[in-house]
Design a protein around this nucleic acid. Structure first.
Lengths: 145, 145
DNA sequence: CTTCCTGCAAAAGTTTTGCATTAAC
DNA sequence: GTTAATGCAAAACTTTTGCAGGAAG
């Protein structure tokens, strides 16, 4: 998944397998996310992708169910969206608690493996079937320091 | 911070140091959180603490600024609140992606230390001054399995 | 062509705010 | 007594939904 056109092909296939079409609006949203390389707020998506709010929300919901995008929650009172990890790489977020900025970041594979293993064990002990973990770094970005 | 009355004393002091009073409504909210031992949604707090919505929101904001409670974000479209970690212990959350249930959980100290160290390093390299990390486990709870 | 998607407008849900009254210190 | 907190109602904001018209396969 290194090329952008690859992403479009994969997404088209996933949408088709759920009986959904890859329309212009959906492609615009994906393009915006491909360029951004970080979670975008709805407002930013509306500006980049140029489509009505209701269509954005509806399309993001469809794209999420098709496994193309992921809804990201921060401390802000609106949602952000990013490409699904199957189209990028497993990563985490640096969140600035002052301005809300969100950036992607990866952590060393060794720690990732430790977290995975421990998280699976802890969850099992609690009666949870764990699907995933979410590790965010909350701090203050360079501009806000 | 093992006793409940201790929590009230500490919170009263923190509120006072910010020029705020420890009123009946605020005490009710704290009591509800002390009993619950897990993040509560606004609706649950309104039921337990029996106060108007607007007062709940305003008081939770004040209590958060005073360092008594923390706003917790999940995938739901409403917020949850829990006692600040300085009044409890550092912990993480098990989140059921089906029913939204949220439970507290702790992970082994050794992993916690690894995460802390790596997170600090990664953040520094990115120009972030890290204050904290947030590690959540997303899965399916026993009841929803 | 047939089914799904779009766009507009209105509704629903959560959270915030103004203001007169009440409680805290 | 003075200052801050409360409670009600109304507003602000994000997100969802209904429905007639248009695009995708």
């Amino acid at each position: 998944m290194t090329d952008r056109s690859d992403a479009h092909v994969v997404i088209a296939r996933r949408l088709a397998s759920v009986g959904q079409r890859y329309t212009h609006g959906r492609r615009s949203l994906i393009d915006a996310l491909l360029v951004a390389n970080k979670p975008l707020a709805i407002g930013e998506l509306l500006a980049s992708a140029a489509l009505p709010q209701s269509s954005a929300y509806r399309n993001l919901a469809v794209l999420e169910q098709a496994g193309a995008v992921r809804r990201v929650v921060t401390d802000e009172d609106f949602a952000r969206y990013e490409l699904a990890e199957s189209l990028t790489e497993h990563h985490h977020h640096l969140i600035c608690s002052t301005c809300g900025r969100v950036e992607d970041v990866t952590i060393p594979a060794s720690l990732e493996a430790d977290v995975d293993r421990t998280v699976a064990r802890v969850a099992r002990r609690s009666g949870f079937a764990t699907a995933a973990h979410r590790l965010d770094l909350i701090g203050t970005c360079r501009d806000c320091a």
